[in-house]
Simulated scan of single mutants.
Amino acid sequence: MPDDLFDQDAWFGRIGYAGSRAPTLATLRGLVEAHSAAISYESIDVLLDRVPKLDLHSLQRKMIGSRRGGYCFEQNMLFRGGLRSLGFDVASLQVRVVRGFAIDAPRPMLHMVLQVNLPEGPYLVDVGFGNLAPTAPLQLSPDLEQDTPHEVMRFIRMGDELTLQSRLGDRWEHIYRVVLLPRVDAEYYIGNWFTASHPDSPHRSNLIAARPGANRTRITLFNARLNVRHATGEVERRMLADKDEYRDVLTETFGLALSDEELAAALDAVARNGTQGAPHPSFA
């Protein structure tokens, strides 16, 4: 398959989507919800010292053909390729993650999101943030509370940027600040290399996976900690004890296909270098 060819049928089969292919808001909603539920966020390749490849052929081979997940650059570049193949008008943006930080924290632009331009206006799409990725397109308008299959979300102004917030229980929490300036792919290649290579990157030392669950739940794995967070804010916690439990959770809960060698190498890396105690703020 040529590098720039997108296999729509394979993608739809992977995410269980059987709806319209017209480039409309209704189609976009269906695709975001289906993709988010089917393809988990995970950065196991980085833990195994592999810099993820971002060409469309490699992304389809990994996340569609090999039934793996991916992190932000992988997920949103794959999703962008699918949208463009359907005729959607898509621009690429970057954001500053402020989950666990002050709203005005001086944060780098190390996360990729998409702006989809529709007759109804511009919408933000992000299937690659992990435990709080919006499970519906969000209208890029400030001060508008927007429901999703999971949380209610909104944007508020922060200078020239829009801060995405999520209502968790009875409080609003900052997620990231959107920089409303289209980016070129070379900037994502730099961010991908930095995230996958810098010794202080949490992805290099920790086993991380996330996906949205049923009944507005969010499921997150950070090393041995498996959390199921409910819409009320209540969290069920479980600690994984051995390799068999990890395999069961990665396979059954997150739908990830790992070889025995990959799983053993990942657990060895966590045992040597993984964060002890509470998870990184972005994955709490």
Score class of each variant (00 low, 15 high):
A210G: 06
M109L: 15
P149R: 07
G13E: 10
N206I: 00
Y176R: 11
M109F: 10
G69I: 02
L54N: 09
Y71S: 02
A34R: 03
A34G: 02
R204D: 06
H174V: 13
T232N: 08
D160Q: 15
M158N: 13
L56C: 02
H198K: 10
K62I: 02
A209G: 08
G277C: 07
D3Y: 11
L162A: 00
A271N: 06
A186P: 11
G65S: 09
R171F: 10
V51N: 09
T163H: 05
R154Q: 05
M63N: 02
A105K: 13
M158V: 12
H203A: 12
V97S: 05
I15M: 07
P2L: 11
I64Y: 00
P279I: 04
G16R: 07
A266I: 03
N131M: 14
V113E: 00
S92F: 11
S66H: 15
L140P: 11
H57L: 14
Q60R: 04
A224S: 12
E161P: 04
D9C: 14
P202G: 04
Y176V: 08
Y71M: 07
A269Q: 09
F12V: 08
D7G: 08
A241I: 11
E261T: 14
D170W: 10
D104Y: 12
L180R: 15
F6D: 00
V152C: 11
Q94I: 09
Q139M: 13
L124Q: 05
D89K: 07
E120R: 04
N227I: 10
V179L: 13
L54W: 10
N76Q: 03
T253N: 09
A133F: 07
L181I: 14
F88H: 00
C72Q: 04
R154I: 05
R80D: 01
A37Q: 05
L138D: 02
F12W: 09
